[in-house]
């Protein structure tokens, strides 16, 4: 009898504790979700000109220039990307299309116009570099908040902004990083700094939102930087000519338009 009472008490205590813990985790996850949606799912669709500058450890700079078109089929879910490369010369006129499903493997297509070739690309490489930059494929389209468990470490002031500091640990053992620390700006609810750590606990890469502009009433990070601390190199990405809710249709993200760039959007 006493034993039963005791066990009930213990069970209740554990339950209450875990509830409390999960409630805290829940808050952290909600914050990460909101920041993720603001950063990667702004409006229903978006169009931008992108300038990428990759600077290696000896200071040598390389540039990539492309147009990017995005459509959200579902907030936080299925998303489609269309990329048309302008520069450098060896990738000019190439088009690249992604059907991103956070819960399944992405589908990717590349069209090489000089040989009229539609190539499907295996997508099991979320940690791979995007076009030779310090950004990975996952950095470009965003990492789903449900892939990690989140914990609020603190709230503080950072570069004149009030931020939440959140620690994220991948649920899978074998992931592209071991730990991530995210600073979320309370005013815009956007991630302004991310630190990626490897499994030895060493800092690998630092992402920073260098510039936030309000575009069509939507706070947008227009200058993004990824620093590879270990390799002593970095990539800066600048977004310009941003346009939201352009009304792009789902059928644009098909082979037809992969081969024939939709000129109403892609100049």
């Amino acid at each position: 009898m006493n034993f039963t009472k005791f066990s009930i008490l213990v069970t209740a205590l554990i339950f209450a504790l875990s509830l409390n813990l999960s409630a805290q985790d829940g808050v952290a996850e909600d914050l990460m979700k909101e920041a993720h949606l603001n950063n990667f799912y702004a409006a229903d669709d978006g169009l931008a000109e992108v300038n990428m500058s990759i600077v290696n450890s000896s200071g040598k700079e390389r540039n990539r220039q492309f147009s990017m078109l995005r459509l959200d089929n579902e907030e936080g879910g299925m998303q489609k990307y269309y990329t048309y490369f302008h520069k450098p010369y060896d990738v000019a006129r190439l088009t690249f299309m992604v059907h991103k499903n956070p819960f399944e493997t992405d589908q990717r297509w590349l069209y090489i116009p000089s040989v009229d070739l539609v190539k499907r690309i295996s997508a099991d490489d979320k940690g791979s570099s995007f076009v030779g930059s310090d950004f990975s494929y996952e950095d470009v389209s965003g990492r789903h908040w449900s892939d990690d468990t989140h914990k609020i470490l603190e709230e503080k002031e950072h570069n004149g902004m009030q931020v939440y500091v959140i620690e994220s640990v991948p649920k899978s053992d074998d992931d592209v990083f071991a730990k991530k620390i995210t600073y979320i700006d309370k005013e815009h609810m956007l991630p302004v700094r991310e630190e990626y750590y490897d499994d030895k606990g060493e800092l690998e890469r630092i992402y920073t939102a260098e510039k936030i502009e309000v575009v069509e009433e939507i706070p947008t990070v227009t200058l993004r930087k990824m620093e590879n601390v270990k390799k002593d190199q970095h990539t800066i990405v600048e977004f310009s000519s941003i346009d939201y809710n352009v009304g792009v249709k789902d059928n644009i993200f098909t082979e037809r338009y992969l081969k024939n760039p939709p000129r109403q959007y892609i100049k």
Partner: peptide, 9 residues
């Protein structure tokens, strides 16, 4: 026929 399978194509 072509399809993604076994983490490849």
């Amino acid at each position: 026929i072509r399809m993604p399978i076994f983490e490849g194509i």
